[in-house]
Amino acid sequence: MSAEPLSTLSTTPAPPPPPSIARGLPWDLYRRQVAAILGLEVRKGFFGKRALGVYFLALMPVTILALRAIVSRAFGSHSDPVEVARTFAISFQTFFLRLVIFFGCVEVFGNLIRREMLERTLHYYFLSPVRREVLAAAKYLTGLLVSFTLFGGATIASFFFAYLPCGLGAFFHDFGQLLAYVGVAFLACLGYGAVFLTFGFFFKSPAIPAVIVFGWEAINFLLPPFLKKISMIHYLESLCPVSVPLGPFAIPADAPSPWVAIPGIFLLTAVLLAISARKIRQLEISYEED
């Protein structure tokens, strides 16, 4: 312990709340608070060893496709752009969406609240003059920023390496597809993020509900049409630019139009965030019970 003496203090009364609180919602204060929480959350959660799992997930498809590109170059083989588009579509829909982004969102969003409860640090936020709803929104935005940066970036890098053996001409020819995939990755982070943030309020470990949702999403192609509608992957796949064969056992169903799928994901996200806001408002800090 430092031996420096405690200085004498001259205390002043705490400043009154900003006048805008009395007049209405202080949006400028909220913006500053969200920015501060976002910065703190990114520093705490995504610049340490604990983030390695998420980085690993994001880099996995990029590494595989980069190695494939290197091998193709080494052997001088030239790929057919149509075949590359189909292969990328399969890998994006079966591997990227269902595994990488899904489990990435479990890790990122499922722990935003729960991990702080386990580490007994959530009370520092709760003891700040921040509306709990603003805190939930800031945490969600942190998750969205981090997950989309990682998985959106990984989508771009994977697409680039997938097309590398075909040359840059093919890459730019199918650039519209890349934008669509990045859009789908964003919607996946948005929707799955809201799902797992909400689960963080209801379950002590996000793993169990995540496995259940994963199973539901995995057997989506076997479900009757009315059940397909209550899964995220049904809407995300419908937005992918290249459709992929689902196998002989798949039960066919009409793909929802983008006019249904996109607002549907936004609506689901809004509903789940409203539930999260309500839960965080009611949340008590009683770490002993956790």
Partner: peptide, 26 residues
Amino acid sequence: RPEELFRLVGYSTQYDAFPRCLSGWQ
């Protein structure tokens, strides 16, 4: 109403836990 309460109140809890990776200043 935390947004008003914690302009007036400071609380040092008994929990000996801190956010990771932060210095005392941070």
